[in-house]
Computed example of a mutant assay.
Amino acid sequence: MTSQIFSHDVQQTLDLIGIFVFALSGGLLAVRKNMDIFGICVLAEVTALGGGVLRDVLIGAVPPAAFTNTGYFVTPLAAGLVVFFLHPEVERINRSIQTLDALGLGLFCVTGTAKAHDYGLGTVPSIALGMLTAAGGGVVRDVLAQETPALLRWDREIYAVPALVGATIVALLIAHGHLTTITATSAAMVAFVLRMLALKYGWRAPRAWHRNGSRVSED
């Protein structure tokens, strides 16, 4: 199966790192929203696992991996507790968290695309589900926190675009029979670098313009 790009142990380790970091970002948003420990853990869980669960349900891989692997389910809870007790310290290392988050984005868009392909989806649907795997949890998090999803906001650095680029590369590699550990890692690194450059330079997706050349109102 193409979804098992890396060895089992390496895949498990990378998944858990990505899940933990995604969960930290969900927990931090819950703290900013003044939620209690239950809310912190819920947002940590949905941020870390939401994209993968949505993907697995859509492709018929049930029960989702998040519910059959205890480590996947427990890791976000651990991250939620870390945020609950140490959120000032976690906020202070936010730049490091963003870097790891970008790595998780690259990893999940790759494995999500490959898994969708394994379940019989074509190139375009596989790309869409690869992007969903990487960014879907953040959308669920923002909806539960009553915020406009970050990937739909013009004033946030691009997030879904790097995942889309990484997923597209993987889908094309699969279509031409060139998906290997090395090429998959390269695709993940492309998504990672794009996300980091977006953070560094404030890259944002273009907004709509009126016919007279002015931007649509921000209201």
Rank of each mutant, 00 (worst) to 15 (best):
M1E: 10
T2Q: 07
S3P: 02
Q4A: 14
S7T: 15
S7V: 06
H8F: 11
D9T: 13
D9F: 07
V10C: 04
Q11P: 00
D15R: 09
D15F: 10
D15H: 11
L16P: 03
I17N: 02
I17L: 13
G18K: 02
I19G: 01
F20Q: 01
V21A: 10
F22I: 05
A23D: 08
A23T: 05
L24R: 01
G27H: 06
L28W: 05
A30Q: 08
A30L: 03
A30P: 02
I37P: 01
G39T: 00
C41V: 08
E45S: 11
V46C: 02
V46Y: 02
A48F: 05
G52C: 13
V53S: 05
L54M: 15
R55L: 04
R55G: 06
R55W: 12
D56M: 03
D56V: 04
L58I: 14
L58N: 03
L58C: 09
I59L: 07
A61T: 04
P63G: 06
P64A: 14
P64N: 08
P64S: 09
A65H: 10
T68R: 08
T70V: 15
Y72W: 01
F73Q: 08
T75A: 15
L77P: 03
A79I: 03
G80E: 03
G80P: 10
V82S: 07
F85H: 09
L86K: 05
L86W: 05
H87D: 10
P88V: 09
P88R: 11
E89S: 08
E89A: 12
R92Y: 04
N94E: 12
S96Y: 12
Q98L: 15
L100Y: 01
D101L: 11
A102M: 04
L103E: 04
L103G: 06
G106H: 05
V110I: 03
G112Y: 02
G112S: 04
T113H: 05
K115V: 09
H117C: 02
Y119S: 03
G120C: 10
S126H: 07
A128W: 15
G130I: 11
M131C: 14
M131K: 03
M131G: 14
L132V: 13
T133K: 07
G137R: 01
V139K: 02
V140C: 11
A145H: 06
E147Y: 11
E147R: 14
T148S: 13
T148Y: 02
P149E: 15
A150K: 13
A150V: 08
L151I: 15
R153Y: 09
W154I: 15
D155R: 10
D155A: 07
R156Y: 15
I158C: 05
Y159N: 01
Y159W: 13
P162F: 13
L164V: 09
V165L: 06
T168H: 01
I169N: 06
I169M: 12
I169D: 08
A171F: 09
I174G: 03
I174H: 00
H176G: 05
H178E: 10
H178F: 02
T181K: 00
A184L: 08
S186F: 12
A187H: 06
A188T: 02
V193G: 04
R195Q: 12
M196N: 07
K200I: 00
W203A: 00
P206M: 08
P206A: 09
R207M: 10
A208N: 09
W209H: 09
N212F: 14
S214L: 15
R215V: 12
R215Y: 12
R215S: 13
V216Y: 12
S217I: 11
E218L: 10
